[in-house]
Simulated scan of single mutants.
Amino acid sequence: MQEEKRTIKYNDAIRNECNEKIAEYLEELPNYCAAFNSSRARQIQVRARKENLRDIKLFFRFITETNPLFKDKSLKEITPEILEQFTASDFEDFANWISEYNGKDKNGADMTYTNSDVGIKRKLSSVRALYRFLYNREYISSNPSLKADLPKLQKKDASTTKILEKFQREPFFAEVDAAYDNAFEKIENEFVEKGKNSKRTLLLPAIAMRDKTMIYLLITTGMRLSELCGIDCTDYSREMGTINIIRKGNIKDSVYISEEVQGKFSNHHQLSKDEVPHD
């Protein structure tokens, strides 16, 4: 019996990837970090929890690498009692340390990482969240992280946000259309030379239209890239002229799209059905 294939949606794939990374971090961190992560599961999304643990791991690494008293300890040996000994100056030292520190990239090569005030504030906020959890659960009797000063960020001026007018968008879309026409011509030439001998080859026209539609969606709706990647064909409602997206914070929303973009969405869907034979 042939096993049924299941298409994993973008959001599911991201969730699985984050959960795997969380499990990896928890293997290296003390047990109370697992309890901390569980408590945050009801408050924030999985990606934010992954980033929390990554920041906390970095904080523990700072402790073991810069403090002579703890240089021989593993990350798992950092106890709440050790954390309670920290002072405001220790948190300032951590903020300075993460502004530029050495680490490894995904391939294990040496790399220098830098953080702006935004990154420093986020990492300190993760550490503060851990301290708040430890204090509320009575692992520690005081919360020294409250003495840490977070970087003050300049608020964005909404009036500086620029929205492209139609006359500004049209030249850009003309370039996109020209690139699509050029790609489609190459695809047709490939069909003539090599024939339609695989499902991948058959899908090329639909893929080209998909890419074009994605650019139009980004420009005309202003949605985030992560929101765009989470879209499935079933999220599009031709009758309503809307597309369902999942916004930051796992909030579901419907976005109205122009008739022009609706047409491209329909063309992509039709090309997928026409070009690829169903088994």
Score class of each variant (00 low, 15 high):
152 K>L: 07
142 S>F: 08
19 N>C: 02
155 K>C: 02
225 L>W: 10
162 K>Q: 12
31 N>M: 07
48 A>K: 06
102 N>Y: 10
98 I>C: 00
127 V>Q: 04
1 M>P: 04
11 N>A: 06
17 E>A: 08
81 E>V: 11
210 R>N: 09
40 R>K: 14
146 L>E: 14
242 T>G: 08
260 E>F: 07
166 K>M: 06
165 E>D: 07
229 C>S: 10
223 M>D: 02
76 K>A: 13
165 E>P: 02
56 I>F: 04
57 K>G: 12
187 I>D: 05
175 E>Y: 08
82 I>D: 04
161 T>A: 10
250 N>C: 05
235 D>R: 06
31 N>K: 11
20 E>N: 10
86 F>M: 10
204 L>S: 13
257 I>A: 00
186 K>I: 00
19 N>V: 04
12 D>F: 01
256 Y>L: 09
95 A>L: 09
25 Y>G: 01
231 I>H: 05
266 S>C: 09
268 H>K: 13
173 F>L: 12
1 M>G: 13
96 N>P: 00
177 D>Q: 11
249 G>C: 03
12 D>L: 07
167 F>V: 10
9 K>L: 05
136 N>V: 04
194 K>F: 15
259 E>A: 05
202 L>Q: 14
154 Q>F: 07
225 L>P: 04
221 T>Q: 10
196 K>S: 11
182 N>L: 12
81 E>W: 07
56 I>R: 01
117 D>Y: 01
41 A>K: 14
219 I>W: 06
253 D>L: 03
69 L>P: 01
108 G>T: 01
111 M>Q: 10
162 K>F: 11
271 L>C: 02
178 A>Y: 07
223 M>Y: 03
105 D>S: 01
189 N>Q: 14
139 Y>R: 06
190 E>D: 15
151 P>K: 09
79 T>L: 10
229 C>R: 12
2 Q>C: 05
256 Y>A: 09
233 C>P: 12
11 N>S: 12
77 E>P: 04
189 N>H: 08
59 F>V: 01
91 F>Q: 01
16 N>Y: 09
109 A>W: 03
80 P>A: 01
97 W>K: 02
80 P>D: 00
170 E>N: 11
131 Y>W: 08
253 D>E: 13
122 R>K: 13
97 W>H: 07
71 K>S: 15
70 F>C: 08
164 L>A: 13
249 G>W: 00
166 K>I: 06
134 L>A: 08
41 A>C: 05
147 K>S: 14
225 L>K: 11
166 K>V: 06
19 N>L: 09
150 L>H: 05
274 D>L: 13
189 N>R: 14
266 S>L: 13
108 G>P: 03
64 T>M: 00
124 L>S: 01
174 A>L: 11
48 A>T: 15
80 P>N: 00
49 R>Y: 02
147 K>V: 03
172 F>D: 06
72 D>N: 15
32 Y>D: 09
61 R>Y: 04
166 K>L: 10
175 E>N: 10
78 I>G: 06
104 K>N: 05
205 P>H: 06
93 D>Y: 05
26 L>V: 07
220 T>Y: 09
73 K>I: 01
40 R>W: 03
105 D>Y: 00
176 V>T: 04
49 R>T: 01
99 S>K: 14
